[in-house]
Structures are given as C-alpha cells and as structure tokens.
Nucleic acid binder design. Structure first.
Lengths: 244, 244
DNA sequence: GAGTGGTCTAGACCACAAT
DNA sequence: TTGTGGTCTAGACCACTCG
C-alpha cells in the first residue's frame, strides 16, 4: 500500500510523501527540466490517495518554484533560473538543494596572506596585516553558478583555515562560528575578467551579477565576500507577501 | 449568501474571498497584532463555505506570515511585520535628489496597446487585452542612469495615460493612486540590446543591471516594470542590522 | 471533555487546452 | 471529446491544548 512510501519514522502527512517523492525524482535527475510530471489522476492511482491530497502536494511544489502547472495541459519540472533573496544572508548550497538540484563546490584557494588594497580597507585592517583568503567555485547540477572570493578577519575567526570547505561552505561555517549582527550588500553588473570567465566557463560577452557582502560582529568586520554569478544562470529575487 | 463577499467582477475563488476579508481586517486595524482570528468552525458558518475552504485560506495566510496558527489553541494575527527591505520601492527621482544631484527625465512612449507575450503573462491578463505601456529615460546631472519600461493594468489605474510624467514619475503616481500591498523584485545582469544602448548612451561591452518589479493590490497585478541601469553608473546597496 | 487546527476522502462541477 | 488542472463540499479521524 501507500504505507511503503511513508518515511520509516512513521508520522508524515501523505501530501508530504508525495512531495518528497517528486523532489527526489528531480534531485536525482530522473526528471529533468520541462519533464512532464504524472497527472493528478495518475498520482492519485499510483499513491492510493485522494486527488485533493495529490493536488495539495503539486500546488505547494508549484508555489515553491519547483513545478510549473498549466491548466488544461499538465505539470512540468520548472526551468527555474537560480533565484534568491539578497535580503538575507543566503547559503548557496542550501538554496540549490531547495530547488531540488545538486550542489558541488571546489576549493580553489585557501591560505593566509598579507592584506592589501581593497581587502585591507574593507576589513578595516592595516595594509600588510595577515588575512585569510579563500576562493570557491559553486556548481548547480555541475554548472558553475557562483565564484566566491572571500577575505576573513583572523581575529574573529581564527580557525577558518582548518575547515573542510568541501563539506561545509565558508558561509555556513562563519554563520555558526560567529553570528554576525550587521550586514552590508552591494549589487552590481560587471564584465568578467579573464580569470573569472575561465572559472565560470562563460564568454566575454556575458555580464555577471556581482554581490558584495560584508558582515560585522561586535563592531569588527568578520568577512568581505565577492560573489560573482553568470548573468544567464543566476538572479536575485524576493517576494514580499504572496502572489496569488 | 456568501455571494455578497465575492468581488463585484464575479470570478474569485471562495478561499480568496476569505483571505481578502481577513487581510482587510488586519490592514484596516480592526484586528491588531495578536488578535484572535475566528476559528475555522466560525468562519465556515459565517461564510457559508466548507471547512476545507476556510482551512486553505488560513493556511496560506499563515504561510505568508500574516497569521500564526497553533494546534489546539487558535489562529492569531502575526506580529513581526517584515524588516525594512533593501529593495523597497525606490523612487529614482528622490534617490537622485537625495544625493544632491539633478534629476531629469523624458517620456519616450506613453500609450495603450494590446498586451502580448511576457507583458500579458506578467500582468495576468489574456493575450491581446489592452494595457498601458510607458518608456521613460531618467538622468542624473544629465547622464542617463535608468531606462524605465513599464506596463500597467488599466483596470487598476485607469487614469495612467492622463498623467504628466514630466512632473511626477510613474512610480510616484502609482504609489499614491493605488497603494500596493505586495511586491516582487528580480535582479539580473544582462547585456543591453541596441535600442537600450542608444538610449543609455553606452557601448555594447557594458553590462546592465536589470531590476524587474511587479506590484499587486488586492490580488491584481498593478504594474510590471523593467528598470535597466548602466553597470558602470549604478548599483544597489544596503546596510542593515541582522536579527540575532 | 470541549474546542482547536491538521489531515484526508470520494465524490463533484468548472475552465481550459489539445485533438 | 478527452484530459488536464482549479475549486469546492460534507463529511471524517486525529493530535493537541486547556480548563
């Protein structure tokens, strides 16, 4: 029966089971973008639940941006360009997983070096003071979506260099290690330089969305991050309240 | 009957009517923060609809952050009311004047036309329905900084075409004419097309920051605006305190 | 025990799109 | 005409909180 679909733990609503089943198919790659999802009638039969229950699952996934529904036509896996809110401090890995996709990342650089120029000024440190510097490349389903260059104040996060950033993103680590009390964001459209183009695998004509973020904790700058995204693969968004 | 609660236009789902009723009570101040909302049973009786319908309305309002629901206790008007947004609806003219600079603008287009493609979809209107379409160029100290292309729902702002937009920006007019209750923003980096390059006086290599904004009032889309800025002359920025 | 919200069913009618 | 999603009903059982 449909009990087989329930989570082992037991107490999960049926519509959650249906949602989980669909998200798993998308996450695993079984259902690519634009793939047609079984109709409500089919899912009703397959899961042995009522149509209202299936409908709720599909409606919620549609509201979460994972599916697109067209009356009279069907339900499809949403194309969904990457989209996030600049308001909060977003976690790129979580954001990607929330879309049902796979997040992977490479550590391209992780070291201590003398602060110079803008990095020193943004961190509020004297020129030549030691800083931590990291460069990460984040991918969504294998496609580069964010280049994360980050400078970290060693006084605030002394263990930064010892982390395994293949398991926990720098963002995740810093958020739990030193919860910041102030944030600054700047958003710009920029032309990528040669190194950025190579890492993001884009050509010179593609503009990039640059999000710069600084965070503070108890008056000291924690980190200055430059997050560069290919314009064709990422955008920032936010909705206040719901659109009906 | 519950027909009295329906919108004059007719076709509104019942759960929408219930939502609208509650939102109106909150917005008007009748129901302050922490006010207890009538139970599902009471609303079912008052509206003459089934409990499932009432439940959906309350569940969605809860998801949108307007209500808080506690099983076994009741439903209450949520506190909070979002932190100030970095992407509040900005008024380009005011923003420029706040920097001590001079704002000028040209009306390049202002007319009614049949909605097509994206404009129709974004406004939630059928293809070919009449819409208002305007194109404005905004300058800071004589230098173009924003190209504002805007589509407006005639049903919501019927007098749009009669305004003098050399004195009041479309944004200012719409904000005071129909105060929106919902906003959506999207930010992208894009390459400008030929017409945009010519109007903004930039060359093909310069990326542009595109801010798309939709606003709603009482469930209907008011306007969809595409604000294009030269990457070298404009950026979005924001500082705020983080909630611990 | 009474009242609340959370979930679920088995039907129904409708609007819409494709054939 | 067929199949799709959108809405709605009138019940039902459950978990939970409170007096």
């Amino acid at each position: 029966m449909n009990q087989m679909l329930r989570k082992p733990g037991g107490a999960e609503p049926l519509y959650q089971s249906v949602k989980r089943f669909i998200v798993d198919r998308i996450r695993s790659g079984d259902w690519p973008v634009d793939h047609r999802v079984p109709s409500e009638t089919e899912l009703t039969r397959d899961f042995g639940v009522s149509r209202m229950t299936v409908h709720r699952a599909l409606r919620e996934l549609s509201g979460e941006g994972l599916l697109t529904r067209v009356q009279g036509v069907g339900t499809f896996v949403a194309a969904g360009k990457a989209q996030s809110s600049p308001l909060e401090i977003r976690n790129i890995a979580e954001e990607i997983r929330a879309r049902g996709h796979t997040h992977t990342s490479d550590v391209r650089l992780l070291r201590q070096e003398p602060a110079k120029g803008r990095a020193a000024r943004h961190l509020g440190l004297p020129d030549g003071a030691p800083v931590f510097h990291s460069l990460m490349l984040h991918r969504e389903n294998g496609i580069p979506v964010q280049l994360e260059e980050r400078y970290v104040n060693p006084a605030v996060a002394p263990d930064y260099l010892d982390q395994d950033f293949s398991r926990v993103t720098p963002n995740e680590y810093l958020m739990q290690a030193v919860s910041p009390d102030q944030v600054e964001h700047l958003i710009e459209a920029v032309a990528p330089n040669a190194a950025t183009r190579r890492l993001l695998k884009i050509d010179a004509r593609e503009p990039c969305l640059l999000l710069e973020r600084r965070t503070w904790a108890r008056g000291a700058v924690v980190t200055w991050a430059r997050l560069t995204h290919p314009g064709s693969r990422y955008r920032l968004g936010e909705t206040f309240a719901h659109r009906p």
